[in-house]
Design a protein around this nucleic acid. Structure first.
Lengths: 335, 335
DNA sequence: TTGTAAGCGTTATCAT
DNA sequence: ATGATAACGCTTACAA
């Protein structure tokens, strides 16, 4: 915990000015002899440049923030896992914010960007930005990349996925297996994914010519225990031959519930999760799941942000990651 | 992305000196009237203090770094999940480093603390610090808390667990179930947990009066696929009636392998994982697992660091988290 | 090529 | 109570 040397210390030790030290350290043209003296002094003293001083001067922190609802959720873990190495390779540190899906927290993250502790922000809002806060997004003090959808014309880089198509893929798959009574276990409707998936479910049913039956729909939360409770509630009043779950955690909970009710998966009830997390292959039977490309979305978001940091003036970009259906035992029986 | 206002801007707007602005902003005694003017100006301009300037002056970043091998590993996720809210509550940001278990990366994290981008570091080294690097730890430019064991007398705060006891609990449990041929699937021996668990396994066997049979031991890596391969190798040359796995990922892989070999769990082979991650309850049968208190270790580490940041002079503390055995279906049959 | 000095946005000391 | 000013550690004109 020794007090570290500064360029002043080195300058004294090497017998040159601080300007020369700075030049050598930054590789600017300098006399061979001076370089040697400075390097020697720096080495001996174990010099390390001070980040605060550097960023005060350069207006660059070489930090990027990532904000999401819950680092315990495998979806976000997948994102972080991709974001981290991309940033690291580019010389950026990663600052992690967990907002618990709280709108105020999310807005706070946005506002505190004004402290300039980070050069940019990747945010995956769960509750989303109400209309009145869009200007906060647009006028953010640093570049922001949003993972998830933002309203048309919001001038920020954006990585989205098409959950509508994802849900459709799932329902078509189940329909193709002969299932006609397809239930849906959703997360809160006031969340962005919750709302999107609810709409997508209704639409996909219609496209398949299936009736919408409110008894087949339950809203809970994006957690396993909530998923189990929702499944129990649903099973109390109807007997679906398939269940679509708004994420893998819910699906895992549904699996618990189905097991308790002695219903076989997939024979009695076919089960589909969403997000295709590692939990899908840990479960038994392994879970068919709609991949929304979390890892790829994370990576693309990091890349977009780095691009933006190099060229702040470029037009906002929207990247769309296509969903895919990963079929496993929970709908097809074989392992 | 507007250029933010500084205290200079505010001072001009309010018609006072920057010193007064600073005082008001920091709640130092000031005339009512001045306070009003400054606050008004600050509000109108949407002032946010600059983090770099502040930390240059105060030598405080209000950031804490956490370095571990792989954010994809549920053990570390559990730690981050606990560390984050503790830091947040104390007004600190979290900087995340993923080292891939690379020794150089770990040492680099330690060295770069000298940049003073963080006030302290929590590190969970996978490969550990060779003797020659202990001075780097001892002489770190900022307080460090190590999760995992450090050699006696290393002057850093330390949160450890007793994996020896953990392994013993597992073997005693298996022994109590009548298992006598207990195999062991370990991770790399040049990692701290790998080495510790290998020694613990040998000791625990001896304590139970069971012979050590090299055919019952396989070394792989801490991943699922590696666990599956290791299990296959082991099963090719011996038929254990129980398997202890050095973590839950390996256990999951072992489960895959056992299933392929048509061996029933727990009837033919009882299976025990370590770390007690969420994967243990996602798997089927659910996994008996040795909890090493990852969440608690994370939380305690964060608390130790915060304490240290308040009182840098206090004697180094060692916190030990007791392991517990969480018995589930993979050893006891019932769900 | 090198040194002097200004400035990044704060906080804090010192006069006033 | 307030203002002028130095200082934090660095980069970068500008002069020499």
């Amino acid at each position: 915990m020794a007090q570290g040397p500064t360029i002043t210390t080195i300058a004294a030790r090497a017998g040159v000015s601080i300007a020369s030290v700075s030049r050598v350290l930054n590789g600017l043209p300098t006399r061979e002899d001076t370089i040697r003296k400075v390097m020697a002094a720096a080495d001996e003293l174990g010099y390390v440049p001070n980040a605060a001083a550097r960023s005060l001067k350069s207006n660059r922190t070489y930090q990027v923030a990532f904000a999401m609802a819950d680092i315990g959720n495998p979806t976000y873990v997948a994102m972080v896992r991709e974001i981290q190495p991309v940033l690291k390779a580019a010389g950026y540190r990663l600052v992690l914010h967990s907002t618990d899906g709280d709108v105020d927290d999310e807005l706070d993250v946005l506002r505190r960007l004004g402290e300039r502790y980070a050069d940019g922000l990747i945010i995956s809002p769960l509750r989303g930005f109400a209309q009145q806060h869009l200007d906060l997004l647009a006028g953010a003090p640093a570049p922001v990349v949003v993972i998830g959808s933002v309203p048309q014309d919001t001038p920020v880089d954006n990585v989205r996925t098409d959950s509508r198509t994802g849900v459709r893929l799932a329902l078509e798959h189940l329909y193709g297996l002969g299932r006609r009574s397809i239930g849906f276990l959703n997360g809160p409707l006031d969340t962005i994914p919750g709302a999107a998936r609810a709409a997508a479910y209704t639409d996909a049913l219609a496209a398949l010519g299936l009736p919408y039956d409110p008894d087949l729909v339950e809203v809970g939360d994006f957690y396993r225990a909530a998923g189990a409770r929702a499944a129990h509630r649903l099973l109390e009043r109807s007997r679906p031959d398939a269940l679509l779950c708004a994420n893998d955690l819910i699906a895992l909970g549904a699996l618990d519930a189905l097991r308790e009710e002695r219903l076989r998966v997939p024979e009695d009830v076919a089960l589909v999760g969403m997000d295709d997390t590692e939990l899908a292959t840990a479960a038994w039977p392994t879970l068919t799941s709609v991949s929304l490309g979390s890892a790829e979305r994370g990576r693309r978001a990091a890349e977009l942000l780095l691009d933006r940091l190099e060229d702040g003036a470029a037009a906002p970009r929207i990247v769309t990651v296509e969903p895919t259906l990963v079929v496993r035992a929970s709908t097809e029986g074989a392992s």
